[in-house]
Simulated assay, not measured.
Amino acid sequence: MVTTGAVAERRTGWTSAGWAALYWVTVALGVVGGGGSWLWLYLASEEATRGASPDRTGANPNIPMGVTGLVVGHVVGLVLLLITARLARHRGRSVAAFAIVGLVIASGIGLALSLQLTDGRLVAPWPHAPFVP
Rank of each mutant, 00 (worst) to 15 (best):
A59Q: 10
L29N: 09
A112Q: 00
R10D: 10
T15S: 06
S45M: 02
T57R: 11
V72S: 02
A88P: 00
P125Q: 09
A44M: 14
V32R: 10
F98I: 02
A21R: 13
W38L: 05
N60Q: 10
T26W: 06
V101T: 15
W19S: 11
G13C: 05
H128M: 08
W14N: 09
E9I: 02
S114C: 12
N62I: 05
M1R: 12
V123Y: 02
F98M: 14
G110D: 01
V104C: 12
S45H: 01
W38H: 12
V75C: 13
E9A: 15
I109V: 15
V95W: 07
I105C: 04
A17D: 04
L122Q: 06
P61S: 07
S114I: 04
W24M: 08
W14S: 08
D119Q: 15
L113C: 08
W40Y: 14
P130G: 08
L41S: 07
F131R: 02
L87G: 13
R93F: 09
I105N: 06
P130N: 02
G35W: 06
G120N: 08
G58Q: 08
T12G: 13
I105P: 02
S16N: 12
L80M: 15
V25T: 14
T3L: 00
L29M: 14
P61H: 10
H74E: 14
L115W: 10
V32P: 00
L22Y: 02
L39N: 10
V79E: 02
G5C: 05
V72R: 03
H128Q: 11
A8H: 09
V132F: 05
L39T: 03
T49W: 00
G30C: 07
V75D: 13
